[in-house]
């Protein structure tokens, strides 16, 4: 029977959202294949319970529970997945296109000798091939690529958030398989520790979601509403030059030709007119939403959606609704 393997990443409180997105994508692909089983692989220390939590979405769950796996290390996952794939021979392996996924998926594919399609935003299986849509050329074009679903199988990493998460299917849960973890998993790569970014020195060049504030904020005291909106959105705060000029935010937060270049997925511009110097620092074709009181502000010509209005009314309201939504 055709197998589809999903590598489930664990968050601090159970499986990461991406695990359910991968599950849904796997099911959709499986339908096109006919009879199939969807399996998950779970790694960590003390993850047995979390693995059981995944059971309703899958037919099999392979659990790698070992002290060596306490910190998710790409090379360790690669070693174990290579063994699992050699044994289970899945037709398709789905991995989240996270930083972690980017660390081990290519090496895993290289080792397993399977083709890999990265950062997919859509998948389709037909005519014995996997078709995927991916964003290329800095987001300016999409590519539809295909790869044969042959003996060696195939791998794909999926962009987090691009696939709807699967609702829990009704019926029987998965079979849980406790997998053995060999000693000395990664003798040639050792983890020395984890570094949290220095407080205050947020690197907005790496942020996926940015709440950018401009001169429209008027006073330093008003920045509070921006910070709490960003917190609600789990975004980082960026700004345009006037805000830095007034020393309300550090220069490391300034987007633009004189500041830093950012490449988020979503850019929420609040009270920013959108001067060319500022927009010159926004790259990678993000989704841009703008709030400005001036309907003629240039930001609206580059934004995807815009709201004309008073940011002092709109921002707190937006935060409230976002918090309601996130519970």
């Amino acid at each position: 029977m055709r197998k589809i393997l999903v590598v489930a990443e664990m968050g601090r409180a159970g499986p990461d959202d991406s695990a359910f997105e991968l599950a849904a994508a796997a099911r959709a692909a499986g339908k096109a294949l006919g009879e199939h089983r969807v399996a998950a692989a779970v790694f960590g220390r003390g993850v047995a319970e979390a693995a059981r939590g995944l059971a309703p979405w899958f037919d099999d769950v392979f659990v790698f529970d070992d002290p060596q796996l306490e910190i998710p290390d790409g090379e360790a996952w690669r070693a174990l997945l290579a063994l699992l794939i050699a044994r289970e021979r899945p037709l398709l392996t789905l991995i989240a296109h996270s930083n972690h996924g980017m660390d081990y998926a290519p090496a895993l594919a290289g080792q397993a000798g399977t083709p890999l399609v990265c950062d997919c935003v859509a998948l389709e299986v037909r005519d014995g091939r996997l078709f995927a849509v991916r964003s290329v050329y800095g987001g300016k074009l999409n590519a539809r690529v295909s790869v044969a679903l042959g003996d060696a199988g195939c791998m794909a990493t999926l962009r987090p958030g691009a696939f709807p998460a699967a609702p829990a299917p009704q019926g029987a849960g998965a079979a849980i398989h406790a997998e053995a973890v060999p000693a000395a998993l990664t003798p040639r790569r050792r983890c020395l520790g984890t570094v949290a970014p220095e407080p205050g020195a947020v690197d907005i060049t790496q942020s996926a979601v940015l709440v950018a504030v401009g001169r429209g904020i008027e006073e330093e005291e008003n920045l509070g509403i921006i910070h709490s909106l960003a917190e609600a959105l789990r975004a980082d705060v960026a700004c345009s030059r006037p805000v830095v000029d007034k020393k309300w935010l550090p220069r490391s937060r300034q987007v633009g030709t004189s500041g830093v270049t950012v490449k988020p997925k979503v850019y929420l511009a609040i009270g920013i007119s959108g001067s060319f110097q500022h927009m010159g620092g926004v790259k990678g074709g993000p989704f841009i939403a703008a709030i400005n009181k001036d309907p003629a502000a240039p930001i609206f010509s580059v934004a995807d959606v815009g709201i004309v209005g008073d940011l002092f009314e709109l921002v707190p309201l937006l935060e409230e609704k976002v918090r309601e939504l996130k519970g």
């Binding site: 987090p160 958030g161 691009a162 996926a208 979601v209 959105l233 975004a235 997925k265 979503v266 929420l268 989704f287 841009i288 939403a289 703008a290 930001i299 609206f300 010509s301 580059v302 934004a303 995807d304 959606v305 815009g306 709201i307 004309v308 209005g309 009314e313 709109l314 309201l317 937006l318 609704k321 976002v322 939504l325 996130k326």
Partner: peptide, 25 residues
Amino acid sequence: AEMLEGSDEEKVLKLIERLRERGGL
């Protein structure tokens, strides 16, 4: 830009909808 219209609340809800589609939430 697609300009979002309506009351402040409507605008904000539409914005949230768009943000959600684009992975901003």
